[in-house]
Each structure stands twice: as C-alpha cells, then as structure tokens.
C-alpha cells in the first residue's frame, strides 16, 4: 500500500484529500505545518507528498526546498497544491524542487488521475 503525506493546514481540505485517498486505497500521513511536514517526510519516507503552498509557519516552497536539501530521498515526488492566480507559482514550485503542480479547487474526479501520474 502506497504511503502519501498530506501537508495541509485547512481542516476541511485535509479531510477531503484524506478521505479521497483512503477510499482509493492509499495509506495517508497528515501534517498541518511546514515544519511537521518536513519531519514526517524525513521520518516516514512516503511515496508521494501533497504540499499546500500557503502554510502557517514556513510556506510549502520552503518546506519542499528543505526536504530536498535534507537528502532524505531525492526521488520522492512532491506535488504542489495551490490557489488560483498566484502568478508564476508553477515555475516557483518546480524551482523549489516540486515534481508537479495541482490547482485548487480540487476536482475529486480528476485529482487521483493527476496524482497517480507521479507515482
């Protein structure tokens, strides 16, 4: 069973993604801050990380950078999840070390397909 780390501060979003992934047969790990996300990534070595960009402490881009720098596992796909209209987010996310990019609002019907491309 593949392990997916969800880094997300919004409770409802977390519930939604977690529910969807569990129903689709994935094991999930949850982190609500950037720092917790980094720790979980290093400790648990998940198969994929869903990284929210707007987080209360350090933002998702910074967290991604630190995960990549920690050398925990350079090959973990990290998918940035961000709001509409943040200019240049796609580039910034790739630059920070993200593998892919998913825009909010999440469409449950296509979300799994998009995510699985990176697994």
């Amino acid at each position: 069973m593949k392990k997916i780390l969800i880094v997300e501060d919004n409770e409802q979003n977390m519930y939604l993604i977690n529910y969807l992934l569990t129903k689709k047969g994935y094991a999930t790990l949850k982190a609500t801050t950037g720092i917790d996300g980094i720790a979980a990534a290093i400790r648990e070595k998940p198969d994929l990380i869903l990284m929210d960009i707007q987080l209360p402490d350090i933002d998702g881009l910074e967290a991604t950078k630190r995960i990549r720098e920690s050398g925990a596992d350079g090959s973990i796909p990290i998918i940035a999840v961000t709001s509409y209209a943040m200019v240049g987010d796609r580039e910034k996310a790739i630059e920070a070390g993200c593998t892919g990019y998913v825009e909010k609002p999440i469409n449950p019907e296509t979300f799994i397909l998009e995510m699985e491309r990176f697994l």
Binding site: Q12, L16, S83, P105, N107
Partner: peptide, 24 residues
Amino acid sequence: MSHELRTPLNSIIGFTGLLLMGIS
C-alpha cells in the same frame, strides 16, 4: 479576499465533487 473567499468555496466544490463520485 482572494484567499478567504476561495478557501470555503474550494471546500464546497471538493465535497460536492466527492459526493457526486459516489464513494461516500
């Protein structure tokens, strides 16, 4: 506004989508 208005809306869109998928 852009953040505060969209966050709940994202949730509404997400959950209706989830319900429509029939997995709940």
